[in-house]
C-alpha cells in the first residue's frame, strides 16, 4: 500500500505516462466540448470580465470578431475555458496535498518579483499575438494538423534559448 501510494501519488510520473494521460484527456475534452485544450483564452476572458465590470463593453474589435469564441449562455467568467483553468488549479492543489508537499513559498528577493512581472507580461502579450500559449498553440495545435503549431514550436525553441541565456546571466 505504501509502495503504491509512493509510486502513484507521491513520486513524479514518468514523462511517457504523463504524455499518454494528457493526450487521452485532450481527446476527451475535444469530444465533450468541441474544442481542444486552451488556457490563456481563459485569462483573456477574465480581463474582459474586469473591463466589462468597469463599464467597458465594446468588444467588437477585429480580435474579438476573430476570436470571441464564447458559446451561447457562457459569460466571461463562466465558460468552459475558465472552468477548466480553475479545475487545473484545484487538481494541482489536490495533488500536492495528497503527496503532502503543500507549502507556502516566500518571495526570495525583489529581483524575482521584477522578473516574474516582466516575464508574465511578455508571456501574456505573446500568447495573444500567437492565439494561444504552449497548450493552445502547440500541444493542441500540432495534433489538429495546424501548421501554426509547428511555427509556434520553432519560435518557442528560439525563445527558450534566448530566455535561458538571460536567466543564466541574471537569475542564476
Amino acid at each position: 500500500m505504501d509502495k503504491l501510494y509512493h509510486k502513484v501519488l507521491k513520486a513524479p510520473w514518468p514523462y511517457w505516462v504523463a504524455a499518454i494521460v494528457l493526450s487521452l484527456l485532450n481527446i476527451s475534452l475535444l469530444i465533450l466540448t468541441g474544442s481542444p485544450w486552451r488556457v490563456t483564452s481563459g485569462f483573456l476572458y477574465w480581463g474582459m470580465w474586469i473591463l466589462e465590470k468597469l463599464g467597458y463593453n465594446d468588444f467588437t474589435g477585429s480580435y474579438f470578431a476573430l476570436h470571441g469564441g464564447l458559446a451561447g449562455g457562457e459569460t466571461f467568467l463562466v465558460n468552459s475555458v475558465s472552468i477548466l483553468n480553475a479545475a487545473v488549479l484545484l487538481g494541482a492543489l489536490l495533488s500536492v496535498l495528497i503527496s503532502s508537499e503543500f507549502k507556502w513559498r516566500r518571495i526570495k528577493n525583489p529581483k524575482q518579483v521584477g522578473f516574474a512581472i516582466f516575464g508574465g507580461l511578455l508571456m501574456g502579450y505573446g500568447a495573444r499575438l500567437a492565439f494561444g500559449c504552449n497548450i493552445g498553440a502547440f500541444f493542441s495545435a500540432i495534433p489538429s494538423f495546424s501548421l501554426h503549431g509547428w511555427v509556434f514550436a520553432l519560435s518557442m525553441g528560439a525563445g527558450g534559448v534566448i530566455g535561458s541565456r538571460i536567466m543564466m546571466r541574471y537569475m542564476v
Binding site: 518571495i107 526570495k108 524575482q112 536567466m167 543564466m168 537569475m171 542564476v172
Partner: peptide, 16 residues
C-alpha cells in the same frame, strides 16, 4: 535554492 522555481536550482547546481 528555497523559493526558486525550476530550472533555477538545476542551473545553480550546474554552475557550482
Amino acid at each position: 535554492c528555497l523559493y526558486e522555481p525550476c530550472p533555477i536550482p538545476l542551473l545553480k547546481a550546474l554552475k557550482k
